[in-house]
Design a binder for these strands. Sequence first.
DNA 1: CGTCATATCT
DNA 2: GAGATATGAC
Length: 202
Amino acid sequence: MNEYEEDRINSNNNLEEDQDRILDWEEGLPTAADDLIPLSQLLIPPDLATAFNVSAQSSRTAIEVNRASRLTLSNLRKPNLLASINRSLPYDDPTVIDSEEGEVEEEAVIVKRARRVVWNPLLHKRFVEVVAHLGVEKAVPKAIMCLMNVEGLTRENVASHLQKYRLFLKKRISIDHHDFDQRMPPLMAPPVFGMAAAYGLQ
DNA sequence: CGTCATATCT
DNA sequence: GAGATATGAC
């Protein structure tokens, strides 16, 4: 399995969790460094763990802590939506790119150039909402892109997706006309209003 | 800039 | 080969 498919699968599995997690991410965060327990410190001291018959927490090396920190930071710098979009950002930050002394881990920070946009359900949902909100005449690539407000998403990306979306609507409508099974793949569920009306067929 | 046909991936 | 996305011509 290549990276492309891995990304795709990972994101699809974590969509909802990511979104929820991000929403209340910033609430109740400690402000002073003093409030934070160092990552390297065990939450339950070994003797206490033994006393209460709790399996001991494995201790963490400095390298592990450092790696976890970098991973967290790289996730934090992604905008909310992108955190759940399976697409790597075009990072330029060399401190993020370079891994230390040959550590090669699967969890290493993603540093490659942005690959093709994958319109996962969450991203598509946003697209559909924006298209519906704009209405027919105004639902053009640039406007959609602006309202979606997803970092890294280009006008071309949107235009391409819009083309496919319009094709889908047209197909859906023609099937509708012949009274065939109208069930739609969830990914392409049309907006309540908007594009369909634009084609004078709904 | 928007739309479309088609190229380029998987 | 089909489907998703990118690209280029207009």
